[in-house]
Simulated assay, not measured.
Amino acid sequence: MNAYLAPAGASAITPTCALQGAVAIAAFASNALLCRVALFTYSIDAATFSDIRLLAGGATLLVVTKLKPEYTRQPNPDPDWISATALGIFVILFSLSYLSLGVSFGALVLFGTVQLTIFIACLLKGERFHRVALMGYLLAIAGLLYLTTPGIGVPRFSGLLMMVGAGVAWGIYTLRGRRAASPLSATAGNFLRATPICIVLGWMLHGHAHASVAGVALAVASGAVTSAVGFVVWASVIRKLPAMSAATIQLLVPPVAALGGVLFLQEPVSTRLVVSFVAVLFGVWLAASVGARHSVTARR
């Protein structure tokens, strides 16, 4: 059975879709915070964190699929090694980049790259975008730049490059996930297939392994809770939206991650954070509510 079907009925955001998107955004921001805490307290190394994250997420989703009768009756989807490879690359580069990048700046680079990747892919497919949606996108980007650029230190180039690579990989994974017939089954399979890819890449890029009980617990929480829940919910959301709307929504992650730093890591509240959050929220609303216009010449 082919696990990839053309998404139907992609349109502007509905209330249900908005709620699912909010859950996914909170999960993505939580992943950044969990990763930051684990790495900056030296509780675990980046590669081991990534491996445990994928294993815990895959195992959790596999158990859920076995417990739900509707999934046990369905034929297993064909393995998608392209999505699994993209996921493995994303997870390991995401963790490694946070060894040298701050949470807010890293999230800006990540989701800015995701936006650019999906935007280029949509243009190549012949999609056209409403000017109001483009204005909203630019406003959201401006809000992110206002949050992260002033006063920021110069990051290590290697961390910046790895986060760009993570953004490209996540953009590819998002685009392919829009066609998943069963988001839960597809995500579970992708997590498990991505694990050996992540292990090999981690060994090549970061050979020093160490882990404490606290570090393992943070990695398991990132995989079994925020990744497993967030990725499945997101896979459901992106099937209902135009690609650019789905990409623009993800620009909410950096300010939400920064807000999480204020609430859970005692980082100071600033006027810049409030202004940035409002600008991003309004920009995302503009872009996502309009949706994308599809050219009659778009390739299927």
Rank of each mutant, 00 (worst) to 15 (best):
L138S: 12
A32N: 07
S95I: 00
L5F: 14
I199R: 01
M244K: 07
I118R: 00
Q74C: 13
I52P: 03
H208L: 08
T195C: 11
F94R: 01
R156Q: 15
A22R: 04
I82R: 10
R179G: 15
C198G: 02
L99M: 11
V233P: 05
T48E: 00
G58M: 02
H294C: 08
I13D: 00
F157M: 14
V232E: 00
I25V: 13
P254V: 10
S104Y: 02
L218V: 10
V109S: 04
A46S: 10
T65D: 03
S236W: 06
C35A: 07
S158L: 15
V280H: 00
V216G: 06
M1S: 09
G230P: 09
V290E: 03
L259N: 07
T174K: 00
L218F: 14
I13G: 05
L273W: 10
F282V: 15
V114R: 01
W81F: 15
T187W: 07
F119A: 12
A12K: 10
G106N: 03
A29T: 04
S43G: 14
P150V: 05
R176D: 00
V275H: 01
G153W: 04
V216C: 11
L259C: 14
Y137H: 06
A186H: 12
G167Y: 03
L39K: 02
L54P: 03
P242T: 11
Q266D: 12
W234I: 10
C122K: 10
Y98F: 15
M244T: 12
H208S: 14
V296C: 12
L61M: 13
L101H: 01
A84I: 13
L134I: 15
V216F: 11
L201M: 14
R53E: 02
V290K: 04
F264N: 04
Q115D: 05
L110K: 05
L192Y: 04
T148M: 07
V91N: 02
A18N: 06
L67Q: 08
P15D: 06
V269Q: 09
I120M: 13
A84T: 11
V275P: 05
T60V: 15
L19E: 00
F119C: 11
I118A: 03
I238S: 06
G260D: 03
S289D: 07
V114P: 05
G153H: 10
K240N: 06
L147M: 14
R36I: 02
P183I: 13
L273K: 07
T14R: 09
L192P: 04
A27Q: 01
R36P: 03
A10G: 10
P255L: 08
L101R: 01
G151H: 02
Y4E: 07
T149Y: 15
C35V: 05
V64D: 01
G171K: 01
N190G: 14
L273C: 08
G21M: 10
K240L: 11
G167F: 04
A121Q: 08
Y146G: 10
A84Y: 12
F105G: 00
T65W: 09
I89M: 11
V37P: 03
L145F: 12
A235Y: 07
L87A: 08
V229H: 03
L144G: 09
V220C: 09
A27K: 00
A246K: 05
G223K: 03
P7K: 04
T113L: 07
T72P: 06
I92M: 02
S185A: 13
W203K: 13
S236T: 11
R53K: 11
Q266E: 07
A3I: 07
T187E: 04
A24Q: 01
V278Y: 08
I118W: 06
